[in-house]
């Protein structure tokens, strides 16, 4: 049952692709219109200043945006806690011995995989 009485006479039914084309064209038209209105009305006054850092000098932040390394470690710390724990508690302990143990275990694994691959390719040809 359709509740009430409706008509769709003001509706143009198109294919999904045509809907995308029409909406994209309309968006382009609106962008041009808005740019014309905005640049006709906007204030032309521009003041140059330093970055707002609550009164602190710019030197308190070494980089204006976070470095790639900071983003990477931030992500690992937040979303891969167990991996971060292993890396901090077993690898980056400050002891060269721990670092060597971690790396040698991985290198041993890689070496074993390389030997197996070599044997298999020799046997199979």
């Amino acid at each position: 049952m359709v509740y009430g009485c409706y008509s769709m006479k003001n509706t143009v039914i198109l294919s999904p692709y045509e809907v995308v084309y029409v909406t994209t064209l309309v968006t382009g038209f609106i962008v041009l219109l808005l740019i014309a209105i905005y640049y006709a009305l906007r204030s032309r006054r521009i003041r140059n200043t330093s970055v707002y850092l609550s009164g602190e000098p710019e030197s308190v932040v070494s980089l204006i945006t976070p470095s790639i390394a900071s983003l990477y470690w931030g992500f690992i710390k937040k979303f891969a806690k167990s991996l971060y724990k292993v890396l901090v508690e077993r690898v980056h302990t400050g002891s060269l011995h721990d670092w060597y143990k971690f790396l040698s275990s991985w290198f041993s694994l890689l070496l074993i995989i390389a030997i197996i691959a070599f044997i298999l390719t020799s046997l199979i040809g």
Binding site: M8, T11, T23, V26, T27
Partner: peptide, 19 residues
């Protein structure tokens, strides 16, 4: 512009595009 042009997909529009 994206928000404003999306209104043609609404039945409120006298030129309503649907698909």
């Amino acid at each position: 512009a994206f928000i404003i042009s999306s209104t043609i997909l609404l039945p409120l529009s006298p030129y309503n595009v649907a698909g």
